[in-house]
């Protein structure tokens, strides 16, 4: 093909570019800023662990957990979304607006803790999705334990250990471990 036929074709077809305010629609599954459903979050911190640029941060407090996201730092790799065990994260189908200050778009979401069914202390929430996934085929009396807080769980296992000891095993001495 001759270059001049390319020129002629371009003249005939008209410009392929767009004038500024016009834009092409975003494709399905576009990697935009990360959004959270706080009612699904379990505060596991996986998203913060895999985030390469520190755009997603999780800070645990006494009765809630803070999920902080800075689109200004984000690389839109989608790692946090793909590792989230409860699908609490998704990405907006539109790119973030432009900004002057990287902190201007920062988002803070609070994930409230739910009270532990045993002691009533606030504890990171446990969602049904995760329970169905992680405790598949587990006896119902154990399944109840998945809702209690870490402290109660420790107490529980200590109680179980004590009950084993009573049956006649010598207690493990400190120097052994």
């Amino acid at each position: 093909m001759n270059i001049f036929s390319v020129l002629l074709k371009n003249l005939r077809m008209g410009p392929a570019t767009l004038r500024f305010p016009e834009e092409v629609p975003y494709p399905k599954g576009f990697h935009g800023p990360v959004k959270i459903h706080t009612e699904k979050c379990i505060c596991c911190g996986m998203c913060a662990y895999v985030c390469v640029s520190g755009a997603v941060r999780v800070a645990e407090h006494k009765d809630n957990c803070e999920w902080v996201y800075s689109p200004g730092l984000c690389t839109f790799c989608g790692k946090c979304v793909s590792v989230c065990p409860v699908e609490a994260l998704h990405m907006a189908a539109k790119s973030a607006p432009s900004y002057f200050n990287t902190k201007a778009l920062d988002e803070v979401h609070l994930v409230p803790y739910s009270p532990c069914p045993e002691c009533g202390r606030p504890t990171p929430p446990v969602r049904e999705v995760l329970r169905a996934k992680a405790f598949k085929g587990v006896a119902p009396n154990v399944l109840v334990k998945s809702l209690i807080c870490q402290r109660c769980r420790q107490k529980d296992s200590q109680r179980a250990l004590v009950s084993i000891q009573v049956k006649g095993e010598p207690p493990p001495s400190r120097s052994d471990k």
């Binding site: 020129l7 371009n10 003249l11 077809m13 410009p15 392929a16 570019t17 004038r19």
Partner: peptide
């Protein structure tokens, strides 16, 4: 030139 290159110009 822009039109021949498929641009608006």
């Amino acid at each position: 030139r822009a039109r021949m290159q498929g641009r608006i110009g």
